[in-house]
Amino acid sequence: MLRDITLGQYYQTNSLLHRLDPRVKIMGTLVYIISLFLFRNLFVYLVVLGCLVSMIKLSKVPFSFMVRGLQPVMMILFLTVICNLLFTKGTVVYSVWLITITREGIELAFYMTVRFIMLIIGSTLMTLTTTPTQLTDGLESVLSPLNKIKVPVHEVAMMMSIALRFIPILMEEADKIMKAQLSRGADFETGNIFHRVKGMLPILVPLFISAFKRADDLAMAMDARCYRGGEGRSKMRPLIYKNVDRRAYMVMIIYLIIIVAVGVFV
């Protein structure tokens, strides 16, 4: 039942990308996303595509996993393509009844699709090669300058990691409650939508109650261990840049230069 859903996209293997510091990967993804939106030029996209493919090769993650990340957004993508095709004004190439398709529309839809797919695959690649814990640690460190303007970065990162930690627990709990209510003859599948929503109550109420209870217990346990926020707190595994990471930053800079060069001169 619910247990079949896998959470967190992390793909366990040992590759160069997996070993990189999470901060590098976050910055890299950011650079990649910026590069996608800098120019609307076919050659730039070929360069980006080349880089993306070599990164995927480097990560040793099977390509099917990237495609899996695309599935949930396929619908949105499809809708944007339709809208772009139908509602962009310009030179008409094809027209029938109320539908007119323009050159600009096709162009826009094409670039939109390319950007979108590459954006999703690129960020999927990051989550596939970085564990959720590493990711939050990395985010905390990358966003730490925001501390200066009184953004509680550590607290936000802590909330994220707690949330991530509790997802599997709550899933298991939901599964347990669902089974218990099924044994009491509950019915989640038949009837109209109102009936079904009402049928979910016997699961949702106990689930929320137990979530609140767990939150209380966790807060108490953290208090008992004298947790008082991020100030002066050290890490068991601090993030330290290694040589590989420095080289990765160099690669990023070179990549950005190439993109700009291609975008401006080609």
């Binding site: 218990a180 044994s183 009491r184 003859g185 019915d187 106990p206 137990s210």
Partner: peptide, 20 residues
Amino acid sequence: LRDLRSKVGLVFQYPEYQLF
């Protein structure tokens, strides 16, 4: 299976979490 479940009652471990 609903017929079975109404004749074979199952009380899970810590059943209090099913109260709603």
